[in-house]
Design a protein around this nucleic acid. Structure first.
Lengths: 148, 148
DNA sequence: TTTCATGTAACTTCAATAGTTATGATTCGG
DNA sequence: CCGAATCATAACTATTGAAGTTACATGAAA
């Protein structure tokens, strides 16, 4: 399949929303992400289902963050997106009769399980507030550079 | 794309070859792996290029392991296959101008880099001999169970 | 020289996200 | 109430790379 960039997308969208006062429309977000508003609705819909954002129709409608930035972690977002497969590599057969293949699967499964546990643990440590703070640092640095 | 199962495939193939005296043909291996001999040649070709196996044409031809089972690690095989992407998830844009996206990428890249380092380290610790030994244990267990 | 085997090109299939088009359903301003 | 703004959703097509298939060329051995 194509690389799954939905986690990256929703993070990008959420941080832009966090920098704004009012709601942002799917069109606004689509411009920020250089994509299509339907893709935005489709992906952000998962976050709405998870209670992280709300969407309003009609005039002055759009998307708003309802959760606390310091509480929502990358792990929450990954879960909200349906816990998509993290690895592009895996076993060819999950429940083989062949003992050789069982030995191969056992070794690979063990390694992948450890890497996945580490990745999810890291995701659980990073909040939207952390990313917003990092953005602020980068923004200040750029302003300073322009000053010189 | 489809899940990449080439590492799993070549491990399965190599262990079957290790259990045999003579060479195995692509057809033999294709039967073990429940796939097509052309797929076997295509995939095993990477291992031949890396010096792990050799292939001979004609009568009594086929594939043979030339490397030491206790030396070849999963890491060697992963490298021989061209170090394919391990993750199915990633950034939507690797070098964005947008500072928000840069902050998002930095956080994701860090987490993925740590998980990848762990996974590759584990791969580096597991040799073909380890897997062959694990297979032997499983085989003995199955024989014992049949005895009862 | 025939048979067995690999080597390889050129496809089709597959799976899941990304992207597009079209239409319907709400909400709100006037 | 009308119409514009906005989301909701269905139904496509595009994309990407591995997997699978077909066909044919090449080389080695009986």
């Amino acid at each position: 399949m194509k690389r799954d960039s939905r986690l990256s997308s929703v993070l990008h969208a959420l941080l832009h929303m966090a920098e704004r006062d009012g709601p942002m429309t799917s069109d606004d977000l689509a411009k920020c992400l250089a994509t299509n508003p339907v893709v935005v609705r489709r992906t952000m819909g998962f976050l709405r289902d998870a209670g992280i954002v709300t969407s309003d129709r009609g005039h002055a409608g759009g998307w708003r963050i309802t959760a606390d930035l310091s509480v929502v972690t990358l792990r929450h977002l990954h879960d909200a997106l349906g816990e998509p497969a993290l690895f592009a590599v895996g076993n060819r057969n999950e429940a083989p009769d062949c003992l050789v293949e069982q030995a191969v699967n056992a070794a690979l499964d063990q390694s992948f399980a450890e890497a996945e546990a580490l990745l999810l643990a890291r995701f659980g440590e990073i909040t939207l507030a952390d990313l917003a703070a990092d953005f602020a640092v980068r923004y200040a640095a750029r302003l300073k550079q322009k000053d010189l």
